[in-house]
Amino acid sequence: VDNKFNKEQQNAFYEILHLPNLNEEQRNAFIQSLKDDPSQSANLLAEAKKLNDAQA
């Protein structure tokens, strides 16, 4: 993981990586967004979790 991520951002990265119901395309999009703007990690994680739950 890129060293410019802080602890919260790293946690978001790993959580998104391991959400079971996202397809690869969705997962990659969230990860790319996280890399583009790490400050949005909490929002991105919340969105990813919502999508993950919706696809459960």
Rank of each mutant, 00 (worst) to 15 (best):
V1E: 14
V1I: 09
V1P: 11
V1M: 10
V1K: 07
D2Q: 02
D2C: 09
D2A: 03
D2L: 03
D2K: 02
N3R: 03
N3Y: 01
N3V: 08
N3E: 08
N3S: 05
K4Q: 08
K4C: 15
K4T: 10
F5E: 11
F5W: 07
F5L: 08
F5S: 04
F5Q: 05
N6I: 03
N6M: 02
N6G: 12
K7R: 05
K7V: 07
Q9R: 01
Q9I: 06
Q9G: 02
Q10A: 08
Q10M: 13
Q10L: 09
Q10F: 08
Q10S: 05
N11P: 02
N11L: 14
N11M: 15
N11D: 09
N11K: 12
A12L: 04
A12R: 04
A12Q: 03
A12W: 06
A12D: 04
A12S: 05
A12Y: 03
F13E: 02
F13I: 06
F13Q: 06
F13S: 03
F13T: 06
F13L: 08
Y14N: 10
Y14D: 05
Y14L: 09
Y14H: 11
Y14S: 06
E15S: 15
E15G: 12
E15L: 14
E15V: 15
I16N: 00
I16Y: 00
L17W: 15
L17R: 11
L17M: 11
L17Y: 15
L17P: 01
L17E: 06
H18K: 09
H18T: 10
H18Y: 07
L19D: 01
P20L: 10
P20C: 10
N21R: 09
N21Q: 04
N21H: 05
L22G: 00
L22M: 04
L22A: 00
L22R: 00
N23G: 12
N23M: 14
N23C: 12
N23P: 06
N23T: 11
E24K: 11
E24F: 08
E24G: 10
E24R: 05
E25L: 14
E25M: 13
E25D: 11
E25N: 14
E25F: 12
Q26D: 04
Q26S: 06
Q26F: 04
Q26I: 07
Q26E: 05
R27V: 08
R27F: 03
N28T: 05
N28M: 13
N28Y: 14
A29G: 07
A29W: 15
A29I: 09
F30Q: 00
F30W: 03
F30C: 02
I31R: 04
I31Y: 09
I31C: 04
I31Q: 05
I31D: 00
Q32E: 06
Q32F: 15
Q32G: 10
Q32T: 07
S33N: 08
S33Y: 03
S33E: 09
S33G: 08
L34M: 06
L34Q: 03
L34S: 01
K35Q: 07
D36P: 01
D36R: 15
D37I: 07
D37W: 08
P38M: 05
P38R: 03
P38E: 03
P38H: 06
P38D: 03
S39M: 12
S39T: 08
S39C: 08
S39F: 02
S39H: 12
S39L: 10
Q40W: 08
Q40T: 11
Q40D: 11
Q40P: 02
S41G: 03
S41A: 09
A42H: 12
A42Y: 15
A42R: 10
A42K: 06
A42Q: 09
A42W: 15
N43T: 09
N43S: 12
L44N: 01
L44K: 05
L45Y: 12
L45N: 02
L45K: 05
A46H: 12
A46K: 13
A46Q: 11
E47M: 14
E47A: 13
E47K: 14
E47C: 15
E47Y: 15
A48G: 02
A48V: 03
A48K: 00
K49E: 03
K49I: 05
K49C: 10
K49L: 11
K49D: 02
K50Y: 12
K50G: 10
K50T: 12
K50N: 09
K50F: 14
L51T: 10
L51E: 06
L51F: 10
L51I: 12
L51R: 07
N52E: 03
N52I: 02
D53M: 14
D53I: 13
D53W: 13
D53S: 12
D53E: 12
D53Y: 09
D53H: 14
A54Y: 14
A54E: 13
A54R: 12
Q55G: 11
Q55N: 12
Q55W: 04
A56L: 11
A56W: 11
A56R: 05
A56T: 13
A56F: 12
A56S: 11
